[in-house]
Each structure stands twice: as structure tokens, then as C-alpha cells.
């Protein structure tokens, strides 16, 4: 399923956040959305998820405007994977995953065998079926993130929007979650994820969508669009790219000592 925006703009009151975004994501692509804090990555996701309605322009799924879908129809097509989060109520991992299937039955019903099978399959697909009976709040952040991905799988949507999936995760879990995401995109899922780590974007994604000042600063294959000037534009810092065989490493530029005035006692 392809996801296209045409001239997408959004403003909170008089503050414009997104202005005139045009891009198109093809099925099976893994797109990293980069940009400094407050640039509107979350706003973009919220528009695409149908959570913000006041946008202008068009967001289209296979040529159909998303506002023409009901909440349930949209849930059938796009799944949202939030950051792993604390929970005021205690659910088992299995129940958490099973909740992804909610759009498949009427509000007065409960999950049936078909949904339970889907949840079980999603857990097995990620290799975390052993967590089933554990309580969601008592597993690690990395495991929670995998459970939320399993929930999106059980939702059986073809597009996943992930809000900073690696935030709050340790080094190892970051890689594990992103490996899993990469695998899913190779299996045909379309994935958009926002990240604050250009290295991850460079290493894992098929396409980079860089936002700056409410517009698209770059959109394309990582090796083409990712360079020193893009990082300078997005984050206002100097970096060097170093060849490391399979990928390029992004290394902060040397000799920044004189720039480090923050926290200096002199």
C-alpha cells in the first residue's frame, strides 16, 4: 500500500508546523524521518494516523484520502507503534498484543479464535511467545517495544508508523529492535519511523525523510542524501563521514573543545 502526501500543511493556531510536504512512500520501504526536536515529526505522524484533522493538503493511501476512512477502516491499514511506555493498568503481554485486533470486530464483541490466533502468530513471528503470560509492565523496555510491534502485526495493517522506537532503549536493544524492523520491511511492511540518530537512519533505512523548518530538507536514498551539509542543516553541528566497509560512520568533527562552553567553569 503506498502512502502519499500532497502539499500537506499543518499549523497549531497561528504557528505553522508543516508547510507543503510532498512525498510518496512505496510498499515495503523503510523510511527514517529525521529532524531536530520540535520540527514536526510527531505532527506529521499524527496527521497520517488520523489523530489531527485540521491539516490542509492531502494524505492518500493507494490514491484514497485518509479522511474518507472510518476510524476502524484506518486502523485496518495503518498501525501506530508508540514508544514503550508505562501503563496505569496491568495487562499481560498476550492481552496487549490481542488489543491490536480490536478493529476487526464490532464494539460489543470480544476477540474470537481468529483474533487470538493472530495475536499468537504475531508473538511467534517476533520470537517472543515466551513472554505471553508475563505482565507488560514487568518486562524490559526492549521487550516492551517488541510487544508493541507484535501488537501492530496482530492489527494486520500494512503500514507501521513508529514514534522513536529506540528512545529509552539501551545500545543492544536499539539494534535488536531495528533489526526486527528491517526484517519486517523486507517482508513487505511499509514502515515510517522517526529517529534522533542519523547513524541508524543511514544504516537501516531505504529512504530518509529529513524535515527542517516545516519543509522537506531531503528525501531519498540514504547514501545520496546523507552528507555533512544535511547534518549541519538539521542539527547545527559538524560531522565527518568515515568509510567502514558496509556502511559509513558519522563521527562528530574533531577539535570541538573550543565550542564546549556549556558547563565550563572558566
Amino acid at each position: 500500500m503506498s502512502l502519499t502526501t500532497q502539499n500537506l500543511s499543518f499549523s497549531y493556531g497561528i504557528h505553522p508546523v508543516l508547510s507543503g510536504l510532498n512525498f510518496s512512500v512505496e510498499p515495503g520501504q523503510l523510511v527514517s524521518v529525521l529532524g531536530p526536536n520540535g520540527v514536526g515529526k510527531s505532527t506529521l505522524f499524527r496527521c497520517m494516523l488520523g489523530l489531527l484533522s485540521g491539516y490542509s493538503g492531502r494524505i492518500m493511501l493507494n490514491g484514497l484520502e485518509i479522511s474518507s476512512f472510518s476510524v476502524r477502516e484506518l486502523a485496518h491499514r495503518i498501525a501506530y507503534i508508540p514508544q514503550s511506555h508505562g501503563q496505569s493498568f496491568n495487562y499481560t503481554v498476550f492481552d496487549m498484543v490481542l488489543m491490536g485486533t480490536t478493529h476487526q470486530f464490532t464494539p460489543f464483541a470480544s476477540p474470537k479464535k481468529r483474533q487470538i490466533d493472530a495475536a499468537q502468530m504475531a508473538l511467534e513471528q517476533l520470537g517472543i511467545e515466551s513472554l505471553s503470560k508475563k505482565s507488560f509492565c514487568c518486562i524490559s523496555g526492549g521487550e516492551q517495544q517488541l510487544v508493541l510491534i507484535a501488537r501492530a502485526l496482530a492489527q494486520q495493517a500494512s503500514i507501521f508508523l513508529m514514534d522513536e522506537p529506540t528512545a529509552n532503549l539501551d545500545y543492544g536493544n536499539q539494534s535488536r529492535v531495528l533489526d526486527c524492523v528491517k526484517q519486517l520491511s523486507q517482508n513487505g511492511y511499509t514502515i515510517l519511523l522517526s529517529t534522533h540518530n542519523p547513524q541508524h537512519a543511514l544504516f537501516y533505512s531505504d529512504t530518509i525523510l529529513a524535515l527542517h523548518g516545516g519543509t522537506i530538507a531531503a528525501f531519498g536514498v540514504p547514501d545520496d542524501v546523507m552528507d555533512e551539509s544535511l547534518i549541519r542543516l538539521l542539527y547545527g553541528m559538524e560531522v565527518e563521514f568515515m568509510d567502514a566497509g558496509k556502511t559509513r560512520l558519522i563521527v562528530p568533527a574533531q577539535g570541538r573543545g573550543d565550542l564546549c562552553f556549556v558547563g565550563s567553569h572558566r
Binding site: R46, L49, L74, A75, Y80, F89, Y91, M99, H103, P107
Partner: peptide
Amino acid sequence: WQLNVLTLGDDEARTMG
């Protein structure tokens, strides 16, 4: 069952239909 999903917060519940 819908109450389960509602406890996850508005955004998540809406994106789950």
C-alpha cells in the same frame, strides 16, 4: 473489551480503531 483499549490512552486507542 473496548475499555481495555481505552485505558491505553486516546491516541493509541484511536489508531486501533
